[in-house]
Simulated scan of single mutants.
Amino acid sequence: MAETRVGDWLVDDTAPLGSGHFARVLPARRVRAEMDGHVEHRAVKIYHARGDAEQRRRALDEIRVQERLMGCPHAVAYVDAFIAPDGPFAGCLVQVMELGDRSLGHHLDVVGPLPAYDAAAALAGVAEALEHVHGRGLVHADLKPGNVVRCRGLWKIADFNVATALRETVAPDLGGTPSYMSPQRLAAVAGGRREVRPADDAWALGVVLAQCLLGGLPSYVTEPRAEEASRLAGQLLDALAARGTDPRAAGLVRELLAAEPAD
């Protein structure tokens, strides 16, 4: 293990927990000498925002969102934020957060389809977290198995880098993952409106629930068209019926993937 110091933390840059053009997330530890050498383990998110005012603003917005969600038991907990003072990440904005042991996406890759009870147990807290997010005037906007993380036995929502605040009933769409976008959201993208609503998070939850029950998606959305989301929803419902999925679980997926957001 090769560790690099970032502030008070030692991070393992060779074993990223997640990585993208916006930031990377690394496992980190801190030895507390004042606590008899107690070692804290956390995740450190290092933003690639040096010299880019817009990226830095986005990073700060994400940190502010995490601060607003402190106390929500099913959102990955915010711990601290600072600017790295020196070393290879000098000048980068850094967020310290709760460390998970695996993502829901990785879990499905390992164990395959989940029984209806296990899927419900995994996502009940995620649904509660979404209610918490929406109650604070926010939309997560990128719910998917890779952004659901298990922390001390609880599944929690992570990665708020495209979460955004509602302006009355609509929030600006900063991006996301097309396969988890609703027909209405994809239609807005195609029309250049870039709008996202709390109901779009509910649609994403329906796709994630179906993915848990099936072990994967039958296909992916590759074009920003409403018809693509409707096609995937139909495939998911057909696959659940063919598998003989618990009717209550399948019915919940059907409700979450309702054609009308009001439903």
Rank of each mutant, 00 (worst) to 15 (best):
D118G: 01
H107Q: 02
A77V: 11
M70A: 12
V111C: 05
A81Q: 12
L114F: 03
H106S: 13
E98G: 13
A75R: 09
A75P: 09
P113M: 10
C72G: 15
V111S: 04
A120G: 14
Y78C: 02
A127Q: 10
L123S: 00
D86G: 12
Y117E: 15
A84Y: 04
M97P: 07
L114K: 06
A90V: 03
D86M: 12
G105K: 11
A119P: 08
Q95W: 04
G87S: 05
D118M: 03
A119T: 01
Y78Q: 03
E128F: 13
A77F: 10
L108P: 04
G71W: 03
D80I: 02
F82A: 00
S103E: 02
A81F: 09
V111T: 07
G91Y: 10
P88H: 03
L99A: 13
A81I: 05
L104A: 00
A116N: 04
C72P: 04
A121K: 14
A124N: 07
A81E: 13
M97E: 14
A120L: 11
C92I: 05
V110Q: 13
L108Y: 09
H107C: 02
A119N: 06
A84C: 06
L93M: 09
E128I: 03
P88E: 08
H106N: 11
P85D: 07
A90R: 15
D101T: 10
G91V: 04
A116F: 02
